[in-house]
C-alpha cells in the first residue's frame, strides 16, 4: 500500500474507514514511519484541542440572563387587571367630569343628570333609526340576491331542457373530473408550500 492521502488519515482518526481499509492502513503504519508520524501529529492536535481549558463561567451568568427576561407573572397580572382597570378609570373620569361641570356651571346635579339623560335619549333614538334603516337595506340586498339566483336557476333549467340526457351526463362527468383534478392540484400545492416553509 502507498502512503496515505491526508483525508484518509483523518478518516482513519475519525473511525470512518471500513474494517478492511483500517486493517490495510494499520499494516501500512507498521511499516511506514512517515505515515506513523503524520498520524501521531494529527492525533495530538485533535486530542490537545479536546483538552483545552474550559471557559470560566461567572456564578451569576444564568441569573443575569433571567433578570433580563420580562416576568411572565407581571405579564399575566397586566392581562388580568387591564380591562377592569380601564373600566374603573373611565367611570372615575366621567363622574369627576360630571361633578366638575356642576361645580363650574353653578347648576345642580339633578338638573345636569336630567340634561345628560335627555342627550343620551336623543343619541339612543338616532342609533335606533340608523339600525332600522341598515336592516331595511340588508333585507333589500337579500331580495336582490335571491332574484338573481332565481334567474340563474331558470336559465340553467332552460338549457338542460334543450340538451339530451347523454349530453347532460357528459357535462356532469366533465365537471366532476375538473373538480377532482383541481382539488388534487390544490392539495399538492399546499403540501409543497408546507414543506418549503419547513425548510
Amino acid at each position: 500500500m502507498n502512503c496515505l492521502i491526508i483525508d484518509r488519515l483523518y478518516a482513519y482518526l475519525d473511525g470512518d474507514l471500513s474494517p478492511t481499509e483500517k486493517e490495510e492502513a494499520d499494516r501500512h503504519f507498521a511499516s511506514c514511519e512517515s505515515c506513523r508520524i503524520a498520524l501521531a501529529t494529527r492525533n495530538r492536535i485533535a486530542k490537545t484541542a479536546e483538552s483545552l481549558p474550559a471557559f470560566k463561567i461567572p456564578e451569576d451568568f444564568s441569573a443575569q440572563i433571567m433578570a433580563r427576561i420580562p416576568s411572565a407573572q407581571v405579564r399575566r397580572r397586566r392581562k388580568t387587571w387591564g380591562w377592569p382597570a380601564a373600566i374603573a378609570a373611565g367611570a372615575v373620569t366621567i363622574t369627576s367630569g360630571f361633578f366638575l361641570t356642576a361645580l363650574f356651571s353653578g347648576q345642580g346635579v339633578p338638573v345636569l343628570l336630567q340634561k345628560a339623560a335627555e342627550a343620551f335619549g336623543g343619541y339612543l333614538h338616532d342609533a335606533a333609526n340608523f339600525a332600522i334603516k341598515s336592516l331595511k337595506i340588508i333585507v333589500l340586498a337579500g331580495k336582490l340576491v335571491g332574484d338573481i339566483a332565481g334567474q340563474i336557476l331558470n336559465t340553467l333549467r332552460a338549457i338542460t331542457d334543450m340538451i339530451g340526457p347523454e349530453t347532460q351526463a357528459i357535462l356532469a362527468g366533465g365537471s366532476l373530473l375538473i373538480l377532482i383534478t383541481g382539488g388534487v392540484f390544490l392539495r399538492r400545492r399546499i403540501v409543497f408550500a408546507g414543506r418549503h416553509h419547513e425548510n
Binding site: C3, T41, T48
Partner: peptide, 30 residues
C-alpha cells in the same frame, strides 16, 4: 490540500512540545 499524499514527516515540532505549551500555541493558531 487534503488530497495530498503524506509528505516526509519524520521531524515534527508538535510531537516534541509539552502539553501546556502546545495548548497555548494551539489557541494562538486557532
Amino acid at each position: 490540500g487534503c488530497h495530498l499524499q503524506v509528505a516526509d514527516e519524520k521531524a515534527s515540532v508538535i510531537r516534541d512540545l509539552e502539553l501546556k505549551e502546545l495548548r497555548t500555541r494551539l489557541e494562538s493558531a486557532m
